[in-house]
Design a binder for these strands. Structure first.
Lengths: 155, 155
DNA sequence: AAAATAAAAGACCTTTATATCTTATTGTAA
DNA sequence: TTACAATAAGATATAAAGGTCTTTTATTTT
């Protein structure tokens, strides 16, 4: 559905959103540890999001990633678009380049609805909206029991 | 959304369905040419579908792939499952292994609906049902103008 | 019935894309 | 001026996609 990059980017930005009280900063290391994302992979994705002005960053001691009031107006669709492009919203389910209303594949009309619905979820969800949801404690961004698996942690 | 393998497998079986009049046989070469799928890739996928009893095959001269009355009762979900597994129907959009009703991710409830709808389309579409749709000539399985692109053809 | 042939089945290899890791640089705050 | 943390380029590993070749099986044809 989404690439691993995009899953990681969404989880990362949601984690930052959850910790975005009065411009608090979150380090890539912190995100990587908490969400079980390879450190340098997370760092690269956060760079892309920062360059696209979807999140803000600050170098140096006590630096990290954070969200301004403006950043909080972005939707999750902006994140998906920055990492994976618009393929998930528009591509033919059978991968046909020239599939369209005038030359539809046998599943074209069935999937128009589904793709619109997927786009709607991402577009209608702004970071600001999702913030309280995250602070309620009823929703989770990581797997249960990760510490019980004897996996090597990145430095 | 779907892997390339799965896209190819679906297009292939739909092509066979379209040509499944009185047990007519279609060769892998034919499928590969018509749908622009690498020959040996198509052959491999057709093998998997034949082993799973989703399609039928016949070796030797005038052999090829075809559909019995029983084969025609299969749904597209059977094809997706045989090639990609059930991930598209059940996996968490953020890739969380332990995402569930009791430990939902922030997008869990939004995507339950979407995943059910996707499953419904594939499960509700049997080959038998889609056959007349394909024979109507209003739906297409390949791209327009492929012959205009100067691409190398497989032998 | 035997030989020739057509087409699927299967093992294995190469290429390409995605994901992950290494190392170095730059900017900022204390 | 030192330590911290983002930025950046590039290398390596892993997985997906695509390709080559051989074997098996069944149907023709002689």
């Amino acid at each position: 559905m989404l690439s691993k990059s995009c899953e990681y980017a969404l989880k990362s930005i949601l984690y930052i959103t959850k910790h975005s009280q009065n411009l608090e900063r979150v380090g890539a290391k912190n995100i990587s540890d908490e969400l079980d994302i390879p450190y340098h992979f997370a760092a690269k994705l956060l760079q892309i999001l920062a360059k696209a002005d979807i999140i803000s960053s600050q170098k140096g001691p006590n630096g990290g990633f954070y969200l301004t009031a403006d950043n909080l107006t972005h939707s999750l669709a902006d994140v998906v678009f920055a990492i994976d492009g618009n393929g998930i919203f528009v591509d033919c389910i059978l991968g046909l380049k020239t599939c369209s209303e005038t030359r539809p594949c046998p599943l074209h009309y069935e999937f128009i609805d589904i793709k619109i619905k997927i786009a709607k979820v991402f577009e209608d969800t702004t970071l600001d909206q999702i913030k309280s949801k995250l602070l309620s404690g009823e929703f989770y961004l990581n797997n249960l029991n990760v510490s019980c698996q004897y996996e090597r942690k990145n430095k």
